[in-house]
Amino acid sequence: TRVETATETAWISLVTALHLVLGLNAVLGLLLLRWQFPAHYRRLRHALW
């Protein structure tokens, strides 16, 4: 059971790390998009709101 718990903890930390990386990538991607295409982003925002 100790090995199972260790594997579980490893999986949880792995999934958490993946989520963090994906979240960071999403934020960075959005920031890059805003920086690269400000006009396009503004138009998109007007369409959404």
Rank of each mutant, 00 (worst) to 15 (best):
L31C: 15
L44Q: 00
L48H: 00
H40K: 01
R2D: 12
W49Y: 01
R34I: 05
A6E: 07
Y41T: 10
S13K: 02
A17T: 06
A39I: 10
H19D: 12
R43F: 04
E8Y: 03
Q36H: 15
E4D: 12
A17Q: 00
A26E: 04
L28N: 04
V3N: 05
L24V: 12
I12N: 05
H46A: 05
G29K: 03
R45Q: 08
V27K: 00
S13F: 14
L14E: 00
R45C: 05
L18I: 02
L14M: 14
L33N: 06
R43A: 03
A17E: 02
L44H: 01
G23V: 14
H40I: 08
A47L: 13
R42S: 11
R42V: 04
A47Q: 10
R42Q: 12
L32T: 01
G29Q: 05
T7M: 15
G29I: 15
L22M: 15
L31I: 11
I12A: 06
L31V: 08
F37E: 05
R45G: 06
H40A: 13
L24D: 07
T7S: 15
L22S: 07
S13Q: 08
A6G: 14
V21S: 14
A6S: 15
L24T: 07
A39S: 13
T5P: 05
H46K: 07
L33V: 07
A17W: 00
A47K: 07
E8S: 06
G29F: 15
L20D: 04
L44N: 02
V15Y: 08
F37K: 00
H19T: 15
L18S: 06
R2M: 15
H19F: 13
V27P: 05
L14Q: 02
L24R: 03
L28V: 07
L14W: 07
W35G: 12
Y41N: 05
R45F: 01
T5W: 00
H46Y: 08
W49Q: 00
E4Q: 13
H19V: 15
L48E: 03
F37M: 00
W11K: 00
A26F: 13
T1L: 13
T7Y: 11
L24C: 12
L18P: 10
A39H: 14
L28Q: 08
V15S: 05
Q36G: 13
T5D: 00
L30R: 02
A17P: 01
F37S: 07
L31Y: 09
L48G: 08
L33M: 12
Y41Q: 05
G23P: 00
Q36R: 15
R34L: 08
V27R: 04
L30I: 10
L31D: 03
R43Q: 10
L48I: 13
R45S: 09
L33Q: 04
H19S: 15
R43I: 09
L31A: 12
A17K: 00
R45W: 06
T1H: 13
L44V: 11
W49K: 04
L30Y: 09
L30H: 03
H40R: 08
E4A: 13
P38E: 08
R34C: 06
N25M: 04
T16L: 09
E4F: 12
L30T: 05
L30M: 11
N25Y: 08
R34Q: 06
W49D: 03
V21H: 07
Y41R: 02
R43M: 05
G23W: 08
V15W: 01
L20S: 05
Q36M: 14
L18G: 01
A10K: 05
L20C: 11
V27H: 08
